[in-house]
Amino acid sequence: MPQFAETAAEAVADVTDGATVLMGGFGNAGQPMELIDALLDSGANDLTVVNNNAGQGDAGLALLIKERRVKKIICSFPRQSDSWHFDAAFRAGEVELELVPQGNLAERLRAAGAGIGAFFTPTGYGTELAAGKETREIGGRNYVLEYPLGGDVALIKAMYADRAGNLAYRKTARNFGPVMAAAATHTVVQVEQLLPTGSLDPEAIVTPGLYVDIVTVIETRTPSAAESERHPAVRPHSQEEGVRV
């Protein structure tokens, strides 16, 4: 069963130096900004970070990179108009980059969570990103062998959790959350709202509580009662619990 942390700082307290941290989010949607801020404050160092991007603007992952706390980043799309902290660190040779096609990133995470030893994928065959990797022709098509990508910790964001740790997401903020929750040894989730067990419709739960270790409530957008009623995962008239646990 999951534990519930009072604060983001408490939620990330167990992240150690040298840890591999899976960070949810695609751009800012689903990015667990407050957990990442807490990780920055915690002083954890020499991190390997897995995220689709390499930080945007002056917040979250970008600041972690700015402070040179990330020794390696594994991502698909580091270069953006506002990735200046990554760009500077990379050009200075102060952060290592493993560039992975986005679908391979998602599937390697999925494989790690699903106990798959490796898989053959057509993505990247014949490109620089498959250089030196084992290949195989299967049924007349060429594939590249890719290995799972697991993490010591996942930091993700969801819309709702219940007391059993079940999660429901909102729109495209779901993105990497479900696969990262399964791929990490220790999964930390920040949610907008915590509901009593039984408030989430079992048919609409996306991440079952079995994947979740720590939940903390951080209101960033304060869903109204009416909005909660409309979310398909929230059963009508379920009683809201306080935001602090």
């Binding site: 998602a106 779901r174 479900p178 696969v179």
Partner: peptide, 26 residues
Amino acid sequence: ADLINAGKVPVTELPGASYFHHADSF
């Protein structure tokens, strides 16, 4: 903020839309 496209631009949802995680999307 929770509804963006691949270019991180805010978009809208049409009737019949569906959401899924990244491994399913790829």
